[in-house]
Design a protein around this nucleic acid. Structure first.
Length: 219
DNA sequence: ACCCAGGGTCATA
DNA sequence: TATGACCATGGG
């Protein structure tokens, strides 16, 4: 009669295996914001190219992006996919950022209102908003993605069809509300997905071991 | 050739 | 509220 692994236990197993992940891979909060939009349904390796393009012409800056011809912006971020849509989304986010006065004023907002403000930007959905809240503004908000849902489902937690915010709150109630922990946990889930579950069907050598096998029996 | 990637919007029922 | 179409590149 084995019990389901708690979220704390899963975190410990992942952290013991992989160690700190050093997320988010960006030099500034604004770069986090750009990356959060560009990584929507895209491979990170492609996002890196897009960001490198922007850096190469010194355009990784909100005002500079706003002053840019939309078509040229789209061309620069082309490698990240959906480049026409993302060019619009990026411009919308920059407009919002500049109109709100940048990091100073935004940085002193309460987390709830800041989240709502982010969600009001066209092209910023819950996951993108939470990426920005956690990794740019260092707020204790757990980022839920498809890997997160899949991982917790596979180890036996029946969260498969929870709506985004329900699942987020469910997780936040079970994980210590610390920025450091939320930061590493999400990064570790992505790392684990890349490392194992995509390439190896049976999770051979998986740090979750019994938890994954347990899920296998129920799947 | 197919599948997927660190999603979100919009139209429709 | 809940599906479905759509957006588009690059690697396995």
């Amino acid at each position: 009669m084995s019990r389901l692994p708690t979220l704390r236990q899963l975190y410990r197993r992942l952290f013991d295996r992989y160690g700190p992940q050093g997320w988010w891979p960006a030099e500034t909060p604004f770069e986090v914001m750009v990356g959060a939009v560009l990584t929507q349904n895209a491979a990170w390796s492609n996002v890196e190219r897009a960001i490198a393009n922007l850096k190469a012409v010194d355009l990784l800056d909100p005002e500079a992006i706003l002053a840019l011809d939309p078509q040229r912006l789209a061309e620069l971020i082309r490698p990240s996919g959906y480049f026409n849509v993302k060019a619009r989304r990026l411009a919308a986010l920059c407009r919002w950022f500049v109109e709100r006065g940048g990091l100073g004023p935004l940085g002193v907002m309460e987390t709830g209102p800041l989240r709502e403000a982010l969600l009001s930007v066209k092209g910023v959905g819950p996951e993108t908003a939470d990426d920005i809240l956690l990794y740019a503004f260092h707020r204790p908000v757990f980022v839920v993605d498809a890997y997160t849902r899949r991982l917790f489902s596979r180890v036996g937690h029946d969260v498969g069809d929870y709506p985004y915010d329900i699942l987020r709150l469910w997780i936040e109630a079970r994980v210590p509300r610390e920025v450091k922990v939320y930061n590493e946990y999400h990064a570790l889930i992505v790392r684990h997905a890349k490392e194992h579950c995509r390439k190896r069907p049976l999770c051979e050598g998986c740090p979750l071991e019994k938890a994954c096998r347990f899920a296998g029996r129920n799947a």
